[in-house]
Amino acid sequence: MPRARGSGIIVALLAAASAPLVLMYVFLVIETVGEAPPGQLLPDGFTLENWRFLWEDLPGKANIWAVTLNTFIFASATTVIVLAVSSTAGYALSRINLPFRAYFLAGVLVLHAFPTVTLIIAIFLVLQMIGLYNTLTGVILVKASLELPLGIWIMKGFYDTVPWEIEMAGVQDGASRFTVWRRLILPQVTPGILALGVFSFLAGWSEFILPQVLAPDNKVQVLSVYLAGLIADDYDLNFALFKSIGLFYVIPVVILYLFFQDKLMNIYGGGTKG
């Protein structure tokens, strides 16, 4: 219900509050290709100097493409695990008459609110003990497991909206529960799978703490750890270089976000991520 009266003031106030954000994101783009002398904000020349990291390894750093590949493997493997496990477990919890079902649900609900970063120390020690420290496999398994309660919860919610009659009709038509799930129910929850998939991918792509602690090695480094390491190492901060890498890093996020905006809003708004 738009009400035009007095909205000029509101716009001005909101604009003032949002100014730092807008500036940061505008300069994120400008500075990567602009040449500005010290003490001046706006560039007076165009350069690709800052993008050299794409074809030249930075001294002492891993190859950017290898790191990007790691990040992609990390994010997509996490997504695949989360999707596969949540879409089966969510179905079982939503639809199958199992003993202890209520306890499983309560467990999932509690865990999905549980702050997972507090577990990082114990997880670090566990990975050391089972020999998965400094491997992508280890950090993928951990990330996927920590995302699972949320994923199961979301998928259960989507399954809950599929009419029972479809399921009953399938069973009466002689199909096993597995066939019913695979051929009749799963196609009804594709929007959920898509939303959860995009969400998990973004969560994996952006994750910093887990790979930083569990897989910091150059060979298994992901983009967040790579960039953070670069920033932490350098006393004379080369913001233009960092931002170029940052922009390179954020492009997939922006693309996915633009395509799946509404679906993502639902998951982020579901009270799931701090």
Partner: peptide, 12 residues
């Protein structure tokens, strides 16, 4: 054979 009130046709 069962016919449900909502017909329960498979939408896809």
């Amino acid at each position: 054979g069962v016919v449900f009130q909502s017909y329960a046709l498979y939408p896809h």
